[in-house]
Design a protein around this nucleic acid. Sequence first.
DNA 1: GTTTAATATGCTCCAAACGAGCATAAAAGG
DNA 2: CCTTTTATGCTCGTTTGGAGCATATTAAAC
Lengths: 352, 352
Amino acid sequence: MNMELSGRAKPTPEKAQRAPSKDSMGHAAVEIGLNAAIVAVLDNEPVALVVRDTADSVGATDGLPFGPFSPRDHRTLEGGLRTWVRDQTGLELGYAEQLYTFGDRGRHVDPGDMAPPIVSIGYLALTQAGDGRGVSNGSWRTWYHYFPWEDWRRGRPDIIGNDIEPRLKAWAESAKPTNGPQPLIARADRIRMCFGFDGATWDEEKVLERYELLYEAGLVDEALRDGRSSAKVWGDHPRLGLPMKFDHRRILATAINRTRAKIKYRPVVFELMPDDFTLYELQKTVEAILGPHLHKQNFRRLVEGAGLVEPTGEMKTRTGGRPAKLFRFRREVLLERPAPGVRVSAPPSSRN
Amino acid sequence: MNMELSGRAKPTPEKAQRAPSKDSMGHAAVEIGLNAAIVAVLDNEPVALVVRDTADSVGATDGLPFGPFSPRDHRTLEGGLRTWVRDQTGLELGYAEQLYTFGDRGRHVDPGDMAPPIVSIGYLALTQAGDGRGVSNGSWRTWYHYFPWEDWRRGRPDIIGNDIEPRLKAWAESAKPTNGPQPLIARADRIRMCFGFDGATWDEEKVLERYELLYEAGLVDEALRDGRSSAKVWGDHPRLGLPMKFDHRRILATAINRTRAKIKYRPVVFELMPDDFTLYELQKTVEAILGPHLHKQNFRRLVEGAGLVEPTGEMKTRTGGRPAKLFRFRREVLLERPAPGVRVSAPPSSRN
DNA sequence: GTTTAATATGCTCCAAACGAGCATAAAAGG
DNA sequence: CCTTTTATGCTCGTTTGGAGCATATTAAAC
């Protein structure tokens, strides 16, 4: 079949010195999976679009919309992604950006017998919840289902103190007496920085680091599934968040991470908002993503002062109180400032 | 040949609903190229390691070290990259991070007849110039050879006003009278924001955006090579920077972009420094990367105050003046602050 | 030896950004 | 009328960081 592909894959190394030559056996071609973490905010709840595989033998496992990249059908990677998402969920993507390309062997194992792609490229897409009404397949789920420890909206989540802290610290202890080559940063220190133990501050931008640490410690189901040795040691505690197919939870962690970081220096919140909105609605959306540490008056001053929004002239009534002014995103800000965003920083009181 | 690869590539779609199925014809497997932008600072000059293809038919074209990813040989993408770099240049990589995965059709055309990979993953590696002594193949070249407009160390480069500005503006004009669907941001505005024309400020972090704009306008050789139509229109002006193989210049632009951004919030400068260094040497290195807008006293205060360095107790003589204290990177800062870096911001006077 | 150049180092001043709090007005909606 | 919620203005006080002044210390040039 795909002759031109195979032909293309064949190198002609005589031209390049020390040419990147293929190993003696065959082609280096691999299958590439395109994966979309599609994020919206629905009733002040940050949600991702997941496709649940009900026919799965092990039970229902959520996954992200995905599909293989096929260069003969897709002119670009992002184009391929949009096609897959449209086919699988009926959703037409708006804003999308590439996150990361994962290629670790053994981090893709499927609970069923479906062969996973070897390399997966993760994308982040932001959309309005209203656009999601057209979703024909899949459902919106809070991302905190998969990352309960990231949800600080009602204070520090109990799961951190009750489950994560003791188990991670036990894991750190178990690695102590090794007197071979020490890692650059000790496990105990990584744990402390990631989860804000022992007086360290909680950094909401370390989403991926935290997930990777839990994976490494064998505390998330995917680690067990992928056959990490240490997984069994820690007995049968409650599972830490819902697992996902393949490496999709890792991709979602990357997506949350990127969203939290980018919202501060690029006006990406507005991808999640309807055209007209109240300043308080905007604040609630930002808080849904970052955690609720915003001072109302200062938020107004910041957002209006930065020229991010402009009043539409309309009012929104039925707010339960005084009607609120409606605003819209002020596009021209992109032509004025190099890095406009909702520049909120964590308050000094956010230390656990 | 690669039976197990082909077998793997075959999906078993019966399990997943709306399964990501392959198109009827053949496999979706593609060849993946791993590309390294290896950066160092040599005599206050930011350099990248390039491999020159002297046997090329069109003439000598520089390229980055690269090679295909082969999952049978490489357990991880980064592992594969390190192998290729070692094989091609003899250099053992230290710090490395993934940049981006490019997969646009038609942006890889080779000047010779060597088939380029369809998808290329770019990496950024930072190393000390001293480590480069072991380089057996390839050479260090200023990255400003490829991006002369990025070199603001002696003020605003002439090439911007003499060549880039008039040609870009002509390109913007040429697209004016179209009254179809307008792009979200007009060409003229993109140009203004990217290059700081008409009173806009120069943002040193827009390296990739600038290169992409020049490519789109057909002003860099790669655009002509890839068969972009508009390329010929603009006559035979001097070329804007040296071209590179495949999409390597785009990858290098991404690398410079990332380096400039990351140096401000992560202590990555120290990957470029020897173990012991003078504060002034550190400043010169930062300036080589960002451009020279640093106040000496404030730089000292910033760096020392942030706890990024500690004195070794030694002095460096033969500085041309009073001997300078030697410092070393203070690793513990990673355990104290969530985002330590050389937090320099452009002075308000940097508007062109 | 003296001068000069280059660096090292400490200190002050000032403006902008921003976190935090207080107070009050305005407009529903029961 | 009372509650709720938003809108709005103002004040502190702290931190950050840009900019400049002054002086000490040494190597190298003369």
